[in-house]
Amino acid sequence: MTKFEWKGVMPAVTTKFTADDQLDLEMFSVNINAQKEAGVHAIILGGTLGEASTLSVDEKRELVEHTVALINGEIPVIINIAEQTTRDAVKAAENAEKQGASGLMMLPPMRYNATDYETVAYFEAVAKSTSLPIMIYNNPVDYKIEVTLDMFEKLLRYNNIQAVKESTRDITNITRIKNRFGDRLNILCGVDTLAMESLIMGADGWVAGLVCAFPRETVAIYELVKAGRIKEATDIYRWFMPLLELDINPQLVQNIKLAEVATGIGTENVRLPRMPLQGEERDRVLSIIAEGVKTRPEIPEF
C-alpha cells in the first residue's frame, strides 16, 4: 500500500476542456503545476468539480495517467469513486491502482438511497478489493446518505479505510469523531465555508474547491492555522469568504472555472449539460471574483 498521510490541502481539481469538448491537458497541466508550486499536499481527480459523471472511461484513464506522470511521485494522486453499482466501484478501484493512483475518495452508492447495511457492504467490498488507502466522502446534504459513527465503527475494521471527507456541515461532528476514534480516522473538511473552523476544531486537512483558482491563499490558511497563527489566517479567510461561498452552489463548477480564468490557470469550458453562467447570475459571480482578485491579500511567510 502506498503510504501517505491524510493531511493538508487536497484540491478537488476541475477537468479542463477545449472549445470543441476534448480534454485540455495543456491547461490542466498549468493548473496542476500552480497547485504544486503553492504547496498543496495531494491532488484529487474525478470529483463533482471534476465533472466526472460526464467523462468516458477512456477520458478518466487518460486524466489519471497524465496526472500521475505530471506529479511524478511528488505528492499523492487520489481518485474519486462515485458509481451506481458495487461491481463498477470495485472495477474503478482496480483501474485506479493499475493507473498509479495513491489513494481513493469514495462516495456511497449513487442514485440509490442505500440503507446503512447496504452502504457499509458497498464500502467493504471496495476496501477488500484494493490495497489503496480510502477516504469516505460523507455528504448527506447533497447525496442523501449519512455515514454515521456506528457505520464507521464497522468500516474501521479495514486498515485501508483511513479518513473521512467531512461534509455534514455540522462542525460538532469533528469532536464526536475525535472522541470516538482518536487518530484512527483522519478528518478532512469538505465544505470550503467551514474550513478554517474545522481545522481549528482538529480537522487534519481540507478537500478544497476554490483552491483551484487560489492555491496560495488556501494553503496559507491551512499552514497558519496549524502553526497557531490564527489572526493571520483569519484575515485571509475573511477576504476569501465571498469567493468560498461560490463553492456551496449548484453551479459550483461554472463558478470556480470562472475564478480560474480570472487568476490565469483555467478556462471557462464546461461539458454539456452544464453551460457557462448567463445574465445577472454571471454578472454577480464575476463581480465577486473581480473584487477578490483586486483585494488579494499579502501572504505571510510560513
Rank of each mutant, 00 (worst) to 15 (best):
K3I: 14
E5P: 08
V9E: 13
V13D: 01
V13E: 01
T14Y: 01
T14F: 00
D21M: 15
L23M: 12
D24K: 12
L25A: 01
F28N: 11
F28K: 12
S29W: 12
N33F: 10
G39F: 02
G39M: 08
G46N: 12
G46E: 11
T48I: 10
L49A: 11
G50S: 07
S53E: 15
T54G: 14
L55G: 02
V57M: 06
D58H: 15
K60S: 07
R61I: 13
R61Y: 08
E62Q: 10
L63F: 02
N72V: 08
N72L: 07
E83H: 05
Q84F: 14
Q84E: 14
T85W: 04
T85A: 05
A89D: 06
V90W: 05
K98F: 01
K98C: 07
K98W: 02
M105Y: 04
P108H: 05
P109N: 08
P109R: 05
Y112P: 06
N113S: 13
D116C: 12
Y117M: 13
T119M: 10
T119I: 02
A125D: 06
S129D: 00
S129I: 00
I134P: 08
Y137T: 02
N139Q: 05
P140A: 01
P140G: 04
Y143G: 06
V147Y: 08
T148M: 05
F152Y: 09
F152R: 00
L156A: 09
R157D: 15
Y158N: 06
N159A: 11
N159S: 14
Q162H: 03
R180F: 06
G182K: 08
R184A: 12
S198G: 02
L199P: 01
L199E: 03
M201K: 15
D204S: 10
A208T: 11
R216H: 12
T218K: 13
A220D: 03
I221A: 06
A227T: 02
E232Y: 09
E232Q: 10
T234A: 15
I236D: 11
R238G: 05
F240E: 01
L243N: 03
Q251P: 04
V253C: 05
E260S: 04
I265C: 11
R271M: 05
R271Q: 04
P273C: 03
E280A: 11
S287V: 09
I289T: 01
K294M: 11
T295Y: 00
T295N: 09
F302V: 09
F302H: 13
